[in-house]
Each structure stands twice: as structure tokens, then as C-alpha cells.
Design a protein around this nucleic acid. Structure first.
Lengths: 238, 238
DNA sequence: TAGATTGTTAATCGATTAACAATC
DNA sequence: TAGATTGTTAATCGATTAACAATC
């Protein structure tokens, strides 16, 4: 509190790795994509890949890819490329998914049920350990082999299953309230599908998926493209 | 106009607006959030809001909010704030959702069905005009009042319904192929839920939602937090 | 060795923030 | 007018890119 410089968010963190252990947010977001692409290379029994090839498959610039990977350490071989298996392992380790992580899914409505059945979670490092809902009609039913549990027991479930990551798919009206209970129970990461801004303590991470917002962003660009078309048709340059 | 500065990427665009009509990508992404918050203020019959209040509700810095809004024009009133109705209208206009836009949803499986029933699309400017699938078991069935149509007719549907925005919720294995057909049929914006990198021409916009990647990003931060906890417990500061 | 490709540097670009003059 | 709050400037920060020395 005393004399902290404003930007110095996490100065004396754990560190330990080569330079200072810091991996930029933008890099972390791309590591997930690299990992997925490496997985499909591995499936095709490809042993080695250059930054140029891997970058093309991931849809990024190769210099950016190399810079991203350099934050993890030096796992490439000059003149050769990256060993697919080694790099896969290193990225998985960095992302913390070498052990499967247990997540709780809160809200088993329309979207929640789809998420409960999403195979991509399991194949990419996550186990849905609990389904939780507030609706008495849903509590006790079985979805994908899991019994839907009562939100009244949320705190106990989080503790028993040692859950630190939750997926929030409740109606917007109750999202903050449920979020508060999750945080109080020990959850420190939340993937939020409810279209509300969640307020959480600074040690809790929230990522949001706002489906309508994604379409609105595309709509903005549609408008821009339509306007460009018109101006071109009219010949109204400048 | 004559001596263009290097940053002047899109100098002679359609423009018309005050400065040069350019809205940064990061700003566009936040406009959707501002619009949602303004909507809830409007519902509560609140007429006016300051940048400080609106920023707090949207979870951003108030200077950033004012800068974002300044790209749309000058709609605030010094000493007073922003008129909720006016600002709502202006943002909606900028995003191009003053008219409802028709979207096609391709792939009516697990996730696709949930998206078909997602109320947030309609309430925030979008109409699902067509459900399309390749599975003969699904084609012809009715979901949320819409008949699922055969992907063989994709091109005709896109043309008939004048669709330019598509939501792609197919299996990853066919996503690129379906994407190519959508683009050839005239679609210029795609919201992609399939965990693959789509290759599209430069005039087509793609936004991706990778659910497992979101969890992996949270997992990375969990690892970091756990490491910090351990180092603190051990007293290994520095 | 010759060719290929990494890891890093330095330049550039874009996004965020604090501060404050303008003005309601 | 006095108080409040916008719109903008300038500084800073973080992310991306091209280029190339290091090195397999």
C-alpha cells in the first residue's frame, strides 16, 4: 500500500523461470490455440514443425509465434524447428493442464446443458465434476451421467470436489449473487456466460463469453463493409 | 489528406463523421457492453448517467469510456453526463443493430440447439432466420419454431434470406468446408464455435469462441496463483 | 561447410491512463 | 457564478512485426 507505483501490478511475484516468469496475457490466450494445432499434428504423426508452418496453422505471424514460445523457454532447435511432442508438453505444463482440472457448472438451463455435454472440455484438460442448479424440477435429474445438485449445497460441493474453476451459466438476474457465493466458497476462476459484469476481488479471475456481443461486433463490421460497397458503387471516392 | 501520416490506415474511407470515422477494434468490443448496461439503466427509468457511473457499471476506467464514446461523436453534456436514451441510440446505430439482422445457424447439435434457443440474440438485435444441418435425422425437425433445413440447400437459403452473418456450430472436421460454402454464397461475417482456425478472404470477418481455450486461460492463472500461495507459505519472498 | 530456422533486438503500432482545459 | 463533468492531450504501457545474428 505504501509507495506502490501505479502500474506495478505484480512486481515481486513468484518468478524463478529464466527471465522473470511473466507470460503476457495476449500470449497465454494464443497458447491454447497452438496447443490445439500441435495436437492435430501429433495425431497425424508429424514429429517436427517450423515456426513458419505452426504459425500458418494457428493463423498468426511467425515472428509472433516465436516470441510467444520464447516466454516458455528455449524449446526450438535452430535449423530444424520444434519437436511436436516436446512443445505440446511444455505448453500444456504452462497452462497447468497436465493434470485434469475439475470444474463446476452452475445453471443447467438451455446453454448449461449444452456445455455439460461439450466433449471439448474433457479432451482438452477439464472434467466437469458437478452440475448445480436452483430449479427443483432440474435438481436430482441426471445429465450426461451426472446428477444435478441443489445450489443450496454449493459451498459443500465446492469444498468436497476441491473446485477452483466454475462455469457460470445462470440467468443474468442471479449471476452476481451466485458469483459471490462461489468466491466465498473458494473459487478463484470463473467463466461467465451471463450477460452481466461480475464484481469480484482482485485475486479472482473472470473471463466472459458474451454471445450477443460477438454478433454485435460482427454487425459493426458489416455496416462498415456495406458503406464501403455503396461509396464504391456511387463512385463517391474521397 | 495530402501528406498522410503513417498511422493513417483508412484515410479516405466512407467517413462522414467528425474526425475520420475510424473506431478502434478494442472500442467496438466494449460498445456492446456499454449498450447492455445502458439498456438496464433505461429499464430502471434512469435518464442520465455520468462517465464515472457508466464506467463503473461496465467495469472499465472512466477515461477509457469517455475516449471510446468520443469516437462516435460528441454526445455528452459537460457538467451533466450522458442522456441514456440518446447514447443507447447512437451506440446501436454505430453497431448497426437499429435494424434487426438475420443470421443463419449451421449445425444444430449439442451446442447449436442451445444457441438456437438463446433469448439474448433476439433481445439484442438478431433474428435467427435459418437452422441448417447435415444430419438426415435432424433435417425436417422443428426447433424453437424453426424447421431445420438441409445443408444441401445452404446457398439458396443464404440468398433467399439475404443472410450475411452466420453462426458456425458444426463439428470441427467439416467447419472449413462449410465456411467455404458460406463465403461463396455471400456470407461476410462468421461467428465460429468450432475449434479450428478458419481460412477466409480478407473481406470476411471471423470471430471465434473457443470454450475449452477460455478454461485453459483460467487454468494458467490458477497455476500462477497456486505457485504464489506456496511461495508465500514457505516464506520464500524475493 | 551450407542451408535452415530459432531466439532476440529494435522499431512501430495500438491501447490505456491521468490530468486538465473547455464548457455545460 | 460555482460546481460538475465532458472531450482531448500527452505520457505510458503493452503488443506486434521485420530483420538478423546465433546456431543447429
Amino acid at each position: 500500500m505504501s509507495a506502490e507505483r501505479p502500474t506495478d501490478r505484480a512486481a515481486s511475484r513468484v518468478a524463478g523461470v529464466a527471465t522473470d516468469g511473466r507470460v503476457p496475457d495476449a500470449t497465454v490466450a494464443r497458447l491454447a490455440t497452438y496447443l490445439r494445432v500441435l495436437g492435430s499434428l501429433g495425431d497425424r504423426a508429424i514429429m517436427t514443425v517450423s515456426s513458419e508452418e505452426l504459425a500458418a496453422l494457428a493463423g498468426v505471424n511467425s515472428a509472433l509465434l516465436r516470441k510467444d514460445l520464447s516466454f516458455l523457454g528455449s524449446y526450438g532447435i535452430r535449423g530444424v524447428g520444434y519437436h511436436v511432442a516436446t512443445l505440446t508438453e511444455e505448453i500444456a505444463r504452462t497452462l497447468g493442464i497436465t493434470v485434469h482440472r475439475s470444474v463446476a457448472l452452475i445453471g443447467v438451463g438451455n446453454l448449461g446443458q449444452a456445455l455439460a455435454g461439450y466433449a471439448g472440455f474433457a479432451s482438452r484438460g477439464f472434467r466437469i465434476a458437478a452440475l448445480i442448479d436452483a430449479d427443483p424440477m432440474r435438481v436430482g435429474t441426471t445429465i450426461r451421467g451426472l446428477v444435478v445438485r441443489d445450489i443450496a449445497d454449493l459451498e459443500g460441493i465446492v469444498a468436497d470436489e476441491q473446485i477452483t474453476i466454475a462455469v457460470l451459466a445462470t440467468p443474468a438476474s442471479v449471476a452476481q449473487e451466485v458469483c459471490d457465493r462461489l468466491v466465498a466458497a473458494g473459487v478463484t476462476s470463473i467463466l461467465n456466460f451471463a450477460p452481466v459484469v461480475l464484481n469480484v476481488p482482485s485475486d479472482v479471475d473472470v473471463r466472459k463469453v458474451d454471445l450477443a456481443a460477438e454478433l454485435q461486433i460482427l454487425s459493426f463490421h458489416e455496416t462498415r463493409k456495406a458503406a464501403a460497397d455503396i461509396s464504391r458503387a456511387v463512385g463517391a471516392e474521397r
